[in-house]
Design a protein around this nucleic acid. Structure first.
Ligand SMILES: NC(=O)c1ccc[n+]([C@@H]2O[C@H](COP(=O)([O-])OP(=O)(O)OC[C@H]3O[C@@H](n4cnc5c(N)ncnc54)[C@H](O)[C@@H]3O)[C@@H](O)[C@H]2O)c1
Ligand SMILES: NC(=O)c1ccc[n+]([C@@H]2O[C@H](COP(=O)([O-])OP(=O)(O)OC[C@H]3O[C@@H](n4cnc5c(N)ncnc54)[C@H](O)[C@@H]3O)[C@@H](O)[C@H]2O)c1
Lengths: 274, 274
DNA sequence: ACGATTTTGTGCATGTGTTCACAAGTGGAT
DNA sequence: ATCCACTTGTGAACACATGCACAAAATCGT
């Protein structure tokens, strides 16, 4: 698990489709990989992928609590604020160590510190945004990133009219400069907000510039070398998943309630919560 | 409801913190699908959540292939284009039926049609965007949604200066009108792009307007009634997950390679403190 | 000092998702 | 007609994730 090396012996590229960074990695028990079946040593290194995502959420909730002046928090409180059940929360926290006090709870500061350490947030990660269109502008101007340790340190586009123009206080560079500028400024995360057709080429340049983490907004599956991590944000897919659930609900209703369904604006049970 | 005891929390509300990430998992799914005990009478109605997300990706790839003139495709081709392994692809497709021909592959049109049917894309889903700021503008102007069956049919904001202003060809309404307008226009999906502090209130109004599917961009955990489906897109979380992997890589390198590390253009190991 | 009370941390059972591997079809060649 | 190369569809094994339930540790009240 920890040492997930070789994927298919094929080319030096793996394809990355979002949600499952580790998912597509076929174990392919051929390579050297871990000789030992049971990884006895250094096991603390593997935190379930799903748990990592939730840790980020806990961190946000904890930060908010800290701002409110809270000093300690129980797993029950924290979990309900984070929208998970308390057993899951405790298990997630147990992956990063034992920082709670039985009978009392967790100290907010300590937890914040430990989660930050685990997520590698103890230092900044320079971010580059490529494709300064509608979405790119929004991202470049968004204040939430720098505040959380992700300063936007480079902007790129092909559009000559945009080159040199400051967006969010930073001048746009030409995409040909991606490798150079990324290396110079120590960019560690590249964000792709170009049209789909340009995304792969842009990604290749980012990789050439030493970027090993990519967040992709373009609706395409990027091919990247082994060591590069890609996550995608695909709004069309999100909407389609919601659509699926709408359809499922409709089917279920139809089944359990074959008659009487005047397509009415079922707005009657308005249950605006307190 | 399957008498889920212990499910603490409010009365008719569940909190929603789902995402694209691997495990994701809308907890609601299990409750809705098979309320009754393990009776083998169970219909094959339930498609794994993760598979649904991938079906959307396959659909996009297939559509592109169809445009290129392809008429048939094998699981091997399609899976490599979609960035998954072929067994997974075939299993995913098997959830929606048997539409392939052994020894040949799948007919592209048929597959497109079946996936669309499964995802409920045979008719349009009206979308409302709330919070017409940086992100809201980008969403309202984005051409990719209407083209895929998700016409943006309503826009809302609190800002008086925005009310009535056309954005992407549609006038902005005041948020007080959310329940009314959503019901009138048959909105089925609400997109929240407001500041975090406003998100819950906005969500409540969407629900009051009959919206049962919400896509949330605000970094907060929304509380919604049972029957409402929420998906979130949290960019800060995405970046933090990438950060985690950067950190893990750094740790691993350090471990397996204690000394000597000067080949790269010093792109890794950004040590700016914070 | 000690039991009542609270809350963590985790072993275990359960559930979900992924991968393997191969029998069963299909079309084309001989 | 028979064989062969190819590809699907799926049972079964495995891997990962979740939730339960309770022992262990801490605090508080008496
Ligand atoms: N806008 C949205 O709400 C939205 C929603 C979902 C997905 N997306 C996706 O995000 C991406 C960007 O969307 P957008 O609405 O900002 O598009 P946009 O057309 O507004 O902006 C695209 C930008 O990319 C630049 N560009 C074009 N080719 C380039 C290249 N080769 N290298 C670098 N830059 C290049 C263009 O000059 C432009 O500035 C698209 O892939 C789109 O599908 C956008
Ligand atoms: N811009 C980004 O790139 C980005 C990235 C990640 C997350 N987000 C999140 O998306 C959301 C929107 O971001 P943004 O950059 O567009 O913010 P923004 O400030 O540009 O826009 C927010 C809009 O919401 C409106 N608004 C405020 N209160 C409202 C209310 N009660 N009801 C309805 N509308 C209200 C404001 O008038 C404004 O038009 C935020 O929650 C932000 O955290 C944005």
């Amino acid at each position: 698990m920890a040492a997930q090396r070789g994927q298919r012996g094929g080319p030096g590229r793996k394809s990355a489709e979002s949600a499952a960074p580790v998912g597509s990695g076929a174990p392919a028990a051929s390579e050297v990989t871990t000789p030992m079946p049971a990884v006895d040593e250094q096991r603390a290194r593997s935190i379930p992928e799903a748990a990592v995502a939730r840790l980020a959420v806990y961190l946000r909730v904890l930060s908010a609590m800290a701002e409110q002046g809270a000093t300690t928090v129980s797993s029950e409180e924290l979990s309900s604020s984070a929208g998970v059940n308390s057993a899951k929360l405790r298990k997630d926290l147990s992956y990063i160590g034992s920082y709670g006090t039985r009978g009392v709870g967790y100290e907010v500061d300590v937890l914040v510190g430990q989660i930050e350490r685990t997520l590698g947030l103890t230092h900044n990660h320079q971010v580059a945004v490529v494709g300064i269109g509608n979405l790119g502008h929004a991202l470049a101007n968004y204040g939430g990133f720098p505040g959380r340790g992700f300063p936007v340190a480079a902007l790129f586009d092909v559009d000559e009219d945009l080159i040199g123009v400051p967006v969010g206080g930073l001048a746009v560079n030409h995409i040909d400069e991606i490798p150079l500028v990324c290396a110079q400024r120590g960019i560690s995360i590249g964000v792709i907000a170009t049209p789909p057709a340009a995304a792969q080429a842009v990604c290749d340049r980012l990789v050439a510039g030493g970027v090993e983490s990519v967040l992709n907004f373009a609706p395409v599956v990027l091919q990247v070398p082994e060591h590069v991590e890609v996550r995608k944000v695909d709004l069309a897919v999100e909407l389609q998943i919601l659509s699926f659930h709408v359809a499922r609900r409709a089917d279920d209703d139809e089944e359990t309630e074959p008659a009487a369904n005047g397509q009415a604006k079922g707005v009657d049970r308005v249950v605006i919560g307190r």
